[in-house]
Design a protein around this nucleic acid. Structure first.
Lengths: 363, 363
DNA sequence: CTGAAAGCGCTAACAG
DNA sequence: CTGTTAGCGCTTTCAG
């Protein structure tokens, strides 16, 4: 249970001064004879010395750690995000402090403040709330934030870097695919639309319909109310409920575009509840491309892919660029093109026999 | 970009001494006049003062943070673990430092050391490697560790608290269920069996068979070799490959017990690849009960549930009990009884019509 | 090439 | 009730 071996102890044993030990620690070997280095190293080993990072951090102000605030890592999507962020942060010499904020601005702020006061100077927000106003004070003090899936709006009091796919485009890709398959009554399934990403996906959905001369029917837009605090994992439940509702309408939609893959999988269940088959009776298309879930679902899910590895890599590099002062200037917004991954959950509404034989003309 | 408001600044403004400010900070209000408190508070606000946790931690040695080392949060199971750990740690005033070690002992050790040197004194290991020998030095210095799903063996050089389900029992529950359904050729599907939990599940599988007078056939045990570093998410791929292999044997198994739910879902795919149906042609039973995946899969997955919320709650309490010195003494091993959740992926091998009409006699 | 000394911001005796 | 003081363990000028 030894605790307290300090540079002084090492110094004494090696018969040098503490500052020399510090120099060894920091690789400034050019300032001393190789033999001195040697002696110091040996002493460290003998004493089982480990540098106290807290002291170092207090002194230098450098805390090699970034924060990641997500709705909930229990959601496979955010789990994957965390996994990717950790991977690249690690490779850049940073550790990851993870927080689940459950989309609660207060919690977000509390976390961000706690991070700031433990020396963390950069955080990635996965939650992408509509406004970052609650972060203004911290941002003013110098907290760097990069937002996932959210560009700061002109109305914002604080500008942040951001990274994300073009959600509007993604939604249009999805809906256009459905449209060219021949669908006209296309439902939109989502939970509370309180994030820009969801807003954008809805906008893209509506735009694509209008573009094709189809008037969006508000009755086909289902916006579930979040029930519990455990929110995210329930995309499945919400998707299921939403699908049941929409598919029970007198003139039911022939296709469902969902705000993410969990909702889509839930929609499968909802359809099944009503004795409907995917894609024969109803096409379903998701968002995210949560491999491997999308590949093992039956039928395999057609969805819009967000290339997480690249995205999170960019995000971390953006952030660390700021932290290391190697990047300054106005906020950057990296927007990535999403890709439609066509699998088995979408088909023509006319007949499930002639599925692939229709002439498909891209918009 | 202000950084550096210290207790001294506050003290000066409030016309008190730094120690008084410190006392306010630490809620020792009984040591001063209410009006003094008032003045200090006002000064803090005026200056936008935030206590520097690093300094406090350096001074007191208390770092309210615990570490969690898992194979990969991209795996929904570990994501759920992280989620639960964070939840209760948070409620006990601790934050969570998360690391993906990819089951690599070296990485585990590096992380654990980094944690130690930043003042973290307790970590939860999800990876549950076969041996904790690599942690001996840290444990000797006083690092508290609780292992998930792994009791320390007598041969261990270091004893740690642990929490986990009775994996042997879980496996027996699963296999017995299959046995009473009438299955005799039951396959075991797993990735590398290098953790006690997997070892135990295998043992339980074998024990249950023997108990029923069925000689375990080594040819029905499939132990996939881990391919990539991204390991865990690939349970699905491995399960698929394993199922294909086992189900292609001349006398193919009529049921598959998999080491976890991801493998089970992969097994679905493998069966499908061969034109086989679950559960008509082959029963599948998993482990973990990854809700909601198990409930939206088709068919819904029969599996052995690990009650994560309780388990992680226990784990964190165990750990924080040690950290706060409120618990001392020999290592504790909390073992929880797993529960068999029967859904739709298991049926009698004889006929898929008579499924539920057999006389079922529990062992 | 190496050492002495002054803090980083906070806390905790111990005096007053 | 409140102030003085001495560090926590490390880094970093600045002298030797």
């Amino acid at each position: 249970m030894s605790e307290n071996v300090s540079v002084y102890d090492v110094a004494r044993l090696a018969k040098v001064s503490p500052s020399t030990v510090s120099n060894v620690l920091n690789g400034r070997l050019d300032r001393m004879r190789p033999e001195t280095t040697e002696r110091v190293m040996k002493a460290m080993e003998q004493l089982g010395y480990t540098p106290n990072q807290l002291a170092r951090q207090l002194k230098t102000g450098n805390v090699p750690m970034i924060g990641l605030i997500v709705p909930s890592v229990a959601n496979p999507f955010w789990g994957a995000v965390a996994r990717n962020v950790e991977e690249v942060a690690q490779s850049l010499g940073y550790q990851l402090l993870l927080c689940n904020a459950e989309r609660d601005p207060e919690r977000e702020q509390r976390y961000a403040e706690a991070m700031w006061s433990s020396g963390i100077r950069g955080v990635i927000f996965g939650s992408s709330p509509l406004s970052f106003d609650h972060l203004v004070p911290l941002a003013h003090r110098g907290l760097q934030v990069v937002a996932f899936d959210r560009q700061s709006q002109s109305a914002d009091q604080v500008v942040v870097d951001s990274i994300g796919v073009d959600n509007t485009l993604g939604a249009r890709l999805a809906v256009n695919h459905l449209l060219t398959e021949g669908h006209r009554r296309i439902g939109f399934l989502s939970g509370p639309i309180r994030t820009v990403s969801r807003l954008d996906r809805l906008a893209g959905y509506q735009a694509a319909l209008k573009n094709a001369g189809v008037e969006p029917d508000p009755a086909l837009i289902w916006e579930g109310a979040s029930v519990s605090a455990f929110g995210d994992i329930e995309g499945v439940e919400m998707g299921r409920a939403g699908a049941r509702t929409l598919l029970s309408r007198p003139e039911r939609p022939t296709a469902l575009f969902t705000v993410n893959d969990m909702y889509a999988l839930g929609a499968y269940a909802g359809a099944r509840d009503l004795g409907l088959h995917v894609p024969e009776d109803v096409s379903v298309i998701g968002f995210d491309d949560l491999v491997p879930l999308t590949e093992i679902s039956v039928p395999m899910l057609t969805t819009v892919r967000q290339p997480l590895p690249q995205m999170m890599c960019e995000a971390v590099e953006l952030l660390i660029g700021r932290l290391s002062k190697s990047r300054t200037g106005p906020p950057e917004h990296v927007v990535i093109e999403p890709e439609l991954i066509v699998r088995e959950s979408t088909a023509s509404p006319i007949s499930h026999i002639a599925v692939d034989t229709l002439t498909i003309n891209k918009e």
